[in-house]
Nucleic acid binder design. Structure first.
Lengths: 185, 185
DNA sequence: GTCTATACGATGATAGAC
DNA sequence: GTCTATCATCGTATAGAC
């Protein structure tokens, strides 16, 4: 197994998706052309197509990468020894929102409306977010509010649901606030 | 002033946007071609371009139409004699969500991320929604909770903010639940 | 005002050299 | 694996007849 080769391969793929994410944040998932991604990545069209079968695959990979970063942040809190209360959790998550990534995230929402694969990626990620929030809130209810594990689990679910909703709304809000450097089509 | 002519003109325009909205709901704002809208509307490309300067203008008009319908529903509650409490208000709004329109609405969010004009339309509509929610909640606080108008106004704002957030999140949820009849790009 | 037919541009994707 | 050059396709927008 050529481990080094695989690692380099993956490195190239992320190099491409990183460049793509920057382009998407400026022009959107659809209106970004492959040419722009080649310019941003410093690679060529041919090279990109050896790593991704077509543009749809690249968009999917980029969407996954964009959403995963949101989950990463939450993961650190979920694993924390002293879990924050729901308000504090929400505040920290909001504080961690990156305007650039928020734009791509909201674009992914729109695309998920129409593309089943992107939708699968998004639904999956949202479920993971909710699950992690629930874990975090559950731990808080047990450790700091003194609830029984059984009752904590029961009460954590609806709270997590609402924290998630407020977080998503804030994501939308952020994506609309940050200025666009791009003229209308 | 040829009033009848203007009325017919407006009628044609809505006929076009209605057809466009159905197409958008299936294929998205960008991947819907003018040809598909002509087919859906029963008109021709030439006809459409006499009513809208270009596709961007048509998308803007359609976006406005899609969002306005959400506001209409809320307007009836805001003007109601017996305003519902926040939970009930939210429940009714959610109950009134149309899956087809929810998809277009979320697509508009994504587009607003990139297109300043669409963003203006969206931000405007969101502000109107929040304002109407606030009015509704304010009336409820005064009439049914017996608060002073001054305090009601103060306390209504953050509640409206949260109801709005929960509503938007539910809109996203609905847009992801309804099945897509369209293959990936 | 509406249609048919078309020009023009843009873009996704590939072939073949290195 | 990567690049350059190219192709084929598709979609917007327009011109001109009715």
């Amino acid at each position: 197994m050529p481990r080094l080769t695989d690692a380099r391969k993956e490195l190239r793929r992320t190099q491409i998706t990183e460049a793509a994410l920057r382009c998407f944040s400026r022009k959107g998932l659809e209106r970004t052309s492959i040419a722009e991604i080649t310019a941003e990545s410093g690679l060529s069209a041919g090279s990109i197509y050896t790593h991704y079968r077509n543009k749809a695959e690249l968009v999917q990979a980029s969407a996954h990468a964009a959403l995963a970063k949101h989950a990463e942040l939450l993961g650190t809190y979920a694993a924390s020894q002293s879990p924050p209360d729901p308000d504090e959790l929400l505040a920290r998550l909001i504080d961690g929102i990156d305007p650039v990534k928020s734009r791509v995230a909201v674009q992914v929402w729109g695309e998920a409306t129409v593309d089943p694969i992107i939708r699968g990626v998004l639904v999956d990620m949202i479920d993971r977010l909710r699950s992690m929030m629930q874990t975090c809130i559950e731990a808080w209810l047990v450790k700091l509010e003194g609830l029984e594990p059984a009752e904590a689990r029961e009460r954590a679910a609806p709270i997590a649901q609402r924290v998630l909703a407020l977080y998503l709304a804030e994501l939308l809000h952020t994506s609309l606030q940050s200025p666009t450097e791009q003229a209308a089509s």
